[in-house]
């Protein structure tokens, strides 16, 4: 090798080293981003698991049913009197939900519980999750064709402010409440949506 070629060889080597360093740094940055995304995803999926523990409690599950017949009680037995969902989710003619369910709970044992706007999801978008895995429940909940055409913001409002949803934490004598407090439920729901609302595969 001539003396003249030595500096250029050193320069080429330096360029190669710098290039490798940059590439390495870029890869490191990229993998950092992926790690953050994975962390978000993991946190979101974990948060939804807690959300699902509420959604699959009897207070939610008894009305988020496939088919036409709501359930009742902590054991999820078929609703007395052959009650049906009806097209609008508010019962069949002469057997409307609010014929018996008032806007507040009754003090009387075995009387129907009450909350404002007592209803089921309507027949077109029944939002049923009875028997679904946690991942499928998550995908069903987000699906506008199944959830009454709600986006995540509207779903958040439903679980936060709907008085009928809030009744689940004040269901009256003889009925269990969901495993989280309402505030914990809302916090977990928010954490899930802020994480991009990921669903377990």
């Amino acid at each position: 090798m001539s003396r003249a070629r030595i500096p250029s060889a050193i320069a080429a080597a330096a360029v190669t080293v710098v290039g490798l360093l940059l590439e390495s740094r870029l890869k490191a940055d990229s993998s950092l981003g992926a790690a953050e995304n994975t962390a978000d995803n993991t946190a979101g999926v974990s948060a939804f698991r807690d959300v699902a523990s509420v959604l699959t409690s009897p207070r939610c599950l008894n009305c988020h049913i496939p088919g036409e017949s709501p359930l009742q009680g902590d054991e999820g037995r078929p609703h007395n009197m052959n009650v049906k969902r009806g097209e609008d989710g508010r019962g069949s003619p002469a057997m409307r939900c609010t014929n018996c369910h008032q806007s507040t709970n009754s003090d009387l044992a075995h009387a129907p519980p009450g909350a404002p706007d007592w209803r089921l999801p309507d027949a077109k978008t029944p939002l049923a999750w009875h028997g679904l895995s946690t991942g499928d429940l998550c995908r069903t909940l987000k699906d506008p064709t199944k959830n009454g055409n709600r986006d995540l913001t509207a779903l958040g409002e439903h679980v936060t402010s709907d008085k009928f949803v809030n009744w689940a934490w004040n269901p009256g004598v003889g009925r269990s409440t969901p495993p989280l407090s309402h505030q914990q439920f809302v916090d977990k729901f928010t954490q899930w949506t802020n994480s991009g609302a990921p669903c377990q595969r």
């Binding site: 009197m81 002469a94 014929n99």
Partner: peptide
């Protein structure tokens, strides 16, 4: 069937 649904209460 309609009658049964409506009158079952």
């Amino acid at each position: 069937a309609d009658i049964d649904d409506a009158m079952s209460g």
